[in-house]
């Protein structure tokens, strides 16, 4: 089940395979690494790749920061606010990405959005500038993915014996100090999992960019790899080139994950 699609992906990426080949208008020809060299010589690919890496990194860091901070907060508040926060987070988590993106877009709409009205920005368009558009998408991505981090880390903190935390507190450690010196080491396996998950999710972000920047933003300024691959593979019917992008993404994610696991293992942590 897992191997066959990947095998097909890899196979197609070595052929000249467009709509004409699929429907039998032209014969399929073997291109070797032709699709890859075409891809790597395309300056747009490198720009998109760079944007994707930076954007994903920003999303991962923000998601983890927000998720962990709220998880710690959850352990410090009473039952009712905790329940409210939990429900709100679960609501955000359960919202389909398309709906979430549309709602965020509406909130920031230059003509009808409440955000501009509250901030007194007039008809400022958030999706016009490259960074401001990325920022808007980042907010949405963080909004819909922090609950996972929060819930997982919260569960992790709950599993930490309370004596340890009490001891730290009695020693006069600040909240930040407890987090850094006590919780982080103890939660390392959990943090590893949520980090890898977030890296994978945020690197592959599609819906948010596609919906919120209208398929890649003005002049393609907000393209990320997944949307770019979609554009190449389906909109332009260049399935082989799209597959090549897919393979590159797969290899990059595998590499990131492997390196990360390797680092952990060297530090003597077994997952």
């Amino acid at each position: 089940m897992l191997v066959y699609p990947i095998y097909q992906l890899g196979l197609i990426s070595f052929f000249q395979y467009t709509q004409a080949q699929v429907s039998g208008g032209e014969p399929t020809t073997f291109k070797g690494f032709g699709n890859y060299s075409e891809l790597f010589s395309d300056s747009q690919f490198w720009q998109v790749l760079l944007a994707t890496v930076l954007f994903a990194a920003a999303c991962v860091v923000s998601t983890l920061a927000v998720g962990c901070a709220l998880a710690v907060l959850l352990t410090r508040v009473r039952a009712v606010p905790r329940l409210v926060l939990m429900l709100a987070a679960l609501g955000a988590w359960a919202t389909p990405a398309v709906t979430g993106s549309t709602v965020w877009l509406l909130l920031f709409d230059p003509d009808f959005g409440p955000v501009n009205r509250i901030l007194g920005l007039g008809d400022h368009s958030w999706t016009y500038g490259r960074l401001s558009a990325f920022f808007l998408v980042l907010l949405e991505v963080v909004w819909c993915s922090f609950p996972f981090v929060m819930v997982t880390v919260y569960a992790g903190i709950r599993a930490v014996p309370s004596e340890v935390l009490e001891a730290a507190a009695l020693d006069g450690a600040s909240q930040w100090r407890i987090w850094r010196s006590v919780l982080t080491p103890m939660l390392r396996p959990i943090l590893t999992v949520v980090t890898i998950q977030s890296v994978i999710w945020d690197f592959k972000v599609f819906t948010q960019i596609y919906v919120m920047t209208n398929g890649g933003g003005i002049a393609g300024q907000n393209l990320v790899l997944n949307v770019y691959a979609y554009q190449q593979a389906f909109a332009s019917s260049k399935y082989s080139l799209g597959s090549a992008i897919g393979v590159v993404m797969l290899l990059m994610l595998l590499a990131v994950t492997l390196v990360y696991l390797r680092l952990l293992r060297r530090q003597g942590e077994e997952l």
Binding site: Q8, L11, I12, F15, Y17, Q21, V22, S23, G24, T28
Partner: peptide, 12 residues
């Protein structure tokens, strides 16, 4: 397996 090409349809 790579010897075989991806699927195409015979649309003659």
């Amino acid at each position: 397996v790579a010897g075989c090409a991806p699927q195409t349809s015979d649309n003659s």
